[in-house]
C-alpha cells in the first residue's frame, strides 16, 4: 500500500516554483532518501508533504489524506512526523518535556514509559532529562528529536537533513537511531545533500535536480548517477 504518493506536483514560495512536475510514491515500510544539491527542492518536498508549503498544482497524499485540504496538525495526528532541517526541538523545554509533548495525549503512566523508552534510545543523556534542550549540543538535540519522534510511533518519519553540521561520530549516532526507527517498521523518508551517506540506511534514492526528478532507483546505482552528473555538468554556485 502507498503511504505517500505524489502526482504531477508543482509547488513553491510565491512566484518561485521550487518543484516542477514531480511524481513518486512510497510503500509502507520502505526507506527512501531524497538527494539533491542546494535549491534542488528536496526540503520543499518534505515541507509540502507536511502541509507547510502550499501546492500550486498536482496532488499529494500522505496516509490516505489529501495534503491540500488537511491541516498540518491533522496529518501529524494521522501518524506523520516531520523533523525539520536543523533542530526540531523546543529549546525552552527540557529533554523529557520535549518527549512528553510528542505523546501528550496518552495517559500519565504510558507517557512515563515512553519517556523512559526514548531516554534509553538516546543512551548517554539519561541523567540529564531535566536539562533544557538549548543547553545540549547540536548532535544531542537531534538525537533527542529523533528518539522522541520514534516513541510517538509514527507511520511515516520525514527527516530533513538530520546530520547537517555534525561531526562524523555524531552522524553515526544519528544514523544508528534512525536504524532503530526502521526496526520499528516506520516508513522513513530521509532528505540528504550527499548521496554517499545514505547507502547503508536507505535502499532507494530519489535524486532531484532543479525541482525535477532526475533519478529514482536503488541507492547504490544512485551514487554512481550523481557522481557522473557532476563530471558532465558541474553545478555552478553562482
Amino acid at each position: 500500500m502507498n503511504v505517500v504518493s505524489v502526482v504531477n506536483l508543482f509547488a513553491g514560495y510565491g512566484p518561485y516554483q521550487a518543484l516542477m512536475d514531480l511524481s513518486f510514491s512510497i510503500e509502507e515500510g520502505e526507506s527512501v532518501a531524497i538527494v539533491g544539491s542546494n535549491g534542488a527542492g528536496k526540503s520543499t518536498v518534505a515541507r509540502v508533504l507536511s502541509g507547510l508549503v502550499p501546492i500550486s498544482s498536482g496532488m499529494a497524499t500522505v496516509l490516505g489524506c489529501d495534503v491540500r485540504v488537511t491541516p498540518t496538525h491533522e496529518l501529524v495526528r494521522k501518524g506523520l512526523i516531520h523533523l525539520p532541517e536543523g533542530v526540531g526541538l523546543f529549546t525552552n523545554l527540557s529533554i523529557s518535556e520535549n518527549i512528553e509533548l510528542r505523546c501528550r495525549n496518552l495517559p500519565r503512566i504510558e507517557r512515563r514509559q515512553r519517556v523512559e523508552e526514548a531516554m534509553e534510545i538516546i543512551g548517554s543523556l539519561s541523567h540529564r532529562r531535566t536539562t533544557l534542550a538549548r543547553d545540549l549540543s547540536g548532535g544531542q538535540q537531534r538525537l533527542v528529536a529523533i528518539s522522541s519522534a520514534i516513541v510517538a510511533r509514527p507511520a511515516v518519519l520525514l527527516c530533513d537533513e538530520p546530520v547537517i553540521g555534525l561531526s562524523p561520530v555524531a552522524i553515526e549516532g544519528v544514523y544508528e537511531v534512525l536504524r532503530q526507527a526502521q526496526s520499528h517498521g516506520v516508513t522513513l523518508l530521509l532528505v540528504e545533500s550527499r548521496a554517499d551517506r545514505v547507502q547503508g540506511l536507505c535502499s532507494r534514492t530519489i535524486v532531484l535536480e532543479r525541482g525535477q526528478l532526475a533519478f529514482d532507483g536503488p541507492s547504490n546505482t544512485a551514487q554512481g548517477f550523481v557522481a557522473n552528473r557532476w563530471l558532465k555538468d558541474p553545478p555552478r554556485s553562482n
Partner: peptide
C-alpha cells in the same frame, strides 16, 4: 565557521 555546512560536494569545493 563551517563554510561547507549545508552545501553539496561541488559547492564546498568551490568555496
Amino acid at each position: 565557521d563551517e563554510p561547507s555546512s549545508g552545501l553539496d560536494e561541488s559547492e564546498s569545493l568551490r568555496l
